[in-house]
Write a protein that binds this DNA or RNA. Structure first.
Lengths: 189, 189
DNA sequence: TTCTTTACGGAGGGATTTCCTCCACTTCTA
DNA sequence: TAGAAGTGGAGGAAATCCCTCCGTAAAGAA
């Protein structure tokens, strides 16, 4: 594979993540190509089917998550709730909507979601998050009924883009919700 | 207008609210008709254009909101934070996603959103909510930087339906977020 | 630089989806 | 029960989306 082609491919994944998160997992692939500044043929050459692209996006997001857990986890013993706060803010800045949307795309057809290829791809992220939560629990840093999936879905929900009902209004709602969730997650039982 | 026709019309509005909230403001009108158990022609006779239907849905939602404010507001003086909690839980059970989505639909074309017909239709709800917030503020019952639009957008965000990434997982996230938001909204500055 | 190989872009045909009207039929109500 | 009011869904027009094909452009080796 030629060097510039590799860059382009990664670039498509990156932009696809944004477009998926912003316009849903069923956008026209032409929109993804346009957003990536790339012809539609190039997109199809790299990702023959929509599912290939979705898988790549999910894969990429999963790596982002495990990376964030690793980095935030380093401060786990010295400052547990600081580490949690850090991790949460990292997660909030990702486009997790693309991940849940991508997975949701398969929900329609598949009967047993747990066995779909995508569900398996995301497993490392779930595992990493869960073990971090377990560790935080030992430190009594977060409420103990939190699960990795709860956190992922909550963050995806909060950060999902949304046009406000009146121009210029309520631009800070996601930040408010993030603050609320942090407060709640730290809180008792 | 015949008696059964009025019932049908109201029924369409009700179902449209759910379908809009669940599948976005740009669903096929056929889906709305099907959900309402009604032929597509009936829908078009009642609402010649998509905007007519959206307007009706928004109108209906606005009335729901002002109604909820009235009811919850009755306990305002005796138990302010109880009233707030009550109102919030009422709002959470509405399909506010339909409202924000409907308004967002116009955001694409209109330059000045404040002057669109829909933005004016929602005004009563915003006003009612804002005056209740002002009252609650006098009682020091909620944080003082809350605005009606913040609340509406936050509730819409929280209650927007979302498929969880793995079957059976994280079904309680909206409830958790609602709890978090309540906690936060009561909290200090 | 030159040549070969790899990769690109976008037109466009086919399939699908959505819109919306038209009219034969059904259901109210006076 | 007659007439008015209302209904459903087939189906044509238009828009949208998918995906391939092929002439052109750019990268990298010699």
């Amino acid at each position: 594979m030629r060097a510039d082609a590799v860059r382009r491919r990664q670039n498509i994944i990156e932009h696809a993540k944004h477009v998926f998160a912003e316009r849903g997992g069923d956008v026209a692939l032409e929109a993804v190509a346009a957003a990536s500044g790339v012809g539609i043929a190039t997109l199809y050459r790299n990702f023959p089917s929509r599912e290939d692209l979705v898988r790549a996006v999910v894969q990429d997001t999963v790596e982002q998550i495990t990376g964030a857990v690793d980095e935030a986890g380093s401060a786990l013993d010295t400052d547990p709730s600081g580490a949690w706060k850090d991790l949460l803010s990292r997660l909030m800045s990702m486009k997790l909507g693309a991940l849940t949307d991508g997975l949701a795309l398969q929900a329609g057809s598949a009967r047993d979601l747990d066995s779909t290829p995508l569900a398996q791809v995301q497993q490392p992220a779930v595992d990493a998050l869960n073990s971090m939560l377990a560790e935080l629990n030992r430190h009594r840093a977060v409420r103990k009924d939190l699960t990795a999936l709860d956190v992922i879905v909550a963050v995806a929900t909060i950060t999902r883009p949304q046009v406000s009902p009146i121009r210029g209004a309520a631009p800070g709602v996601p930040e408010q919700l993030a603050e609320a969730y942090l407060l709640w997650s730290l809180g008792g039982s």
